[in-house]
């Protein structure tokens, strides 16, 4: 398998963008997310409490975008990861605006970088993609760089 990898060929795809997809943020989605991780913070669910907080109303917990990304994002990868196994390697997220129920977010993924490294289990590919979320007011809400490990 490993010998079929043509890194130069794959690198040509860097910069490729996914078709934009949209996702509507709903209160029920936020509640389900908070319950799944056992996070009872009233900022996510209690309108009265959230009204007095920084954002003046219910907002989504920061982790929600990871979930939304899984649901809403088209793959910006114009190739199949060449090796059989894929692991999520982590990433970084930057938030610019709060995410509120009723927001309609446009999600765009972009192939950002590909690196190769020899690991414990042989050759590994680090595939980095950039995701941006923009709301209905055309404000950039968040940006993420996520790394998939293909080995």
């Amino acid at each position: 398998m490993a010998e079929q990898i043509n890194l130069d060929e794959m690198k040509k795809a860097i910069g490729t963008q996914s078709e934009p997809s949209t996702i509507e943020i709903e209160k029920g989605m936020i509640r389900k997310f908070a319950e799944a991780i056992e996070d009872p913070n009233p900022l996510w669910q209690d309108e009265q409490h959230a009204k007095k907080a920084r954002h003046g109303g219910i907002v989504a917990p920061p982790g929600l975008l990871m979930a939304v990304m899984m649901v809403g994002q088209g793959s910006p990868m114009p190739f199949r990861p060449p090796m059989p196994r894929i692991l999520d390697g982590g990433g970084e997220w930057e938030y610019f605006k709060p995410i509120r129920p009723g927001d309609v977010l446009t999600v765009v993924g972009k192939l950002y970088d590909i690196r190769e490294r020899e690991g414990r289990m042989g050759k590994m590919l680090f595939i980095v993609s950039e995701t941006t979320w923009t709301n209905q007011n055309n404000e950039l809400v968040a940006r993420a760089l996520g790394t998939l490990i293909n080995y």
Binding site: A53, R54, P98
Partner: peptide, 23 residues
């Protein structure tokens, strides 16, 4: 990662804002 988000949002309270995050 979501747990770590909860760690931070519990700590910074209703008036704080999580700006940047990596793991």
């Amino acid at each position: 990662r979501a747990w770590l988000g909860q760690l931070m949002t519990n700590w910074i309270g209703g008036q704080g804002f999580l700006k940047k995050f990596s793991c």
